[in-house]
Design a protein around this nucleic acid. Structure first.
Lengths: 105, 105
DNA sequence: AGCAAGTGCAATCATGAGGTTGCAGTAAAC
DNA sequence: GTTTACTGCAACCTCATGATTGCACTTGCT
């Protein structure tokens, strides 16, 4: 069971503000400035969060004229979910094995 | 799409040391002291991590004599994976809808 | 060309998190 | 009943991070 680059993704998802950003982007692609209008944080704070999200592939930038809009990469969320699922299944398997031993089978 | 208590779980999973602990616990239940023998961190550091993991339900304590062993709760990992999967699917759905509009259907 | 809107970079600040050391408490073991 | 091992609490340190302000730079728009 190799966690690979999985941990940074979880770290990125472990922040409420970033989820707010992701949720806002769910309404449609938006720039850092646009997001700053909706969320109670500065544009620069949002820019940093977007950088983090981009770093782990959860979001990607799209230049539109002079602004840079960001789009959620749903595939990365799904991929992360699948990897986590695999790890969870692995533990379930182990626990089942232990349980069988405990029950004297 | 309500994230609920999901974010703290991701925050907990966003640390390499905690994954080391989870991996070590995968070999069998163990106490903080026992884990301190295998990992390059202090027992107290491990105790804190275990507290965090317990807080979000990823691990649970089991008293055995005078020691407190910890066990991985595989179900919580699976549940988290499922919730994340649902969120990822939601985004996939939205992206698909947008794509259809873009293609003029 | 000039203005406005948007982005990018840098310095700064505060708080929280990961980690350590030290000591007190507690419960088995002998 | 001591000793011995393990847990628990508290203080402390350091560094990363979330957030801010301020300014320079680019890029459309008119």
């Amino acid at each position: 069971m190799t966690t690979g680059t999985l941990v940074p993704v979880f770290a990125a998802l472990g922040d409420e503000t970033r989820w707010s950003i992701l949720a806002a982007l769910g309404e449609g692609d938006a720039s850092a400035s646009a997001l700053a209008g909706r969320l109670p944080v500065t544009r620069q704070a949002i820019a940093k969060h977007l950088a983090v999200l981009q770093e782990v592939g959860l979001v990607e930038p799209v230049r539109v004229g002079r602004e840079v809009r960001y789009r959620v990469v749903g595939a990365e969320l799904s991929a992360t979910a699948r990897r986590l699922e695999a790890i969870g299944a692995e533990w379930d398997r182990r626990l089942a094995a232990i349980k069988e031993i405990a029950e004297g089978l």
